[in-house]
Amino acid sequence: MVNESDRHARFNELAKNYGADLYRYAMWICGNDALAKDLVQETYLRAWKALDKLNDIAAAKSWMITILRREYARTFERKVPKFTDVETVVIPEDSELEPDDRAEIKLLRESIMELAPKYREPLLLQVVLGHSCQEISDQLGISKSAVMTQLFRAREQLKSRLRKDGVTANVHELF
């Protein structure tokens, strides 16, 4: 039986280790700052409630992602709207970047949001959360081979968009 003090310590560890990653993940799957914050908050509320069920701390990251994905699915079961208010989407300004790089990053971000969920989600799990293909396969319940195909296609689509949009030519249009 875990005492209350250990429980708090464990929760704080989960918050500090995965809070930022979960927010990034939530933000990229829903595209809205307010909803992403709500998803993360709800994920941690549920994690706090069920903390005693987490036997293996090494599995915490996948456990948290599973909670968040379920909560996101519930969001749509409840028909909570998909927000399109771009003002609420918080994307930090990369002031240290050169204009061309900023344009490229901006295009990449737009392109990531335009990826079909089946391509975007494995990419998020890999790039944002550092999951291996096998871990993504376990998380999404699809074969490792399918994960690899989706990751490959996701990257190809992003590269193709960058090539097609001719980043440099569009710098002034974008800023």
Partner: peptide, 8 residues
């Protein structure tokens, strides 16, 4: 870099 959003 593109995917690295800051925690609010």
């Amino acid at each position: 870099r593109a995917m690295d959003l800051q925690l609010p």
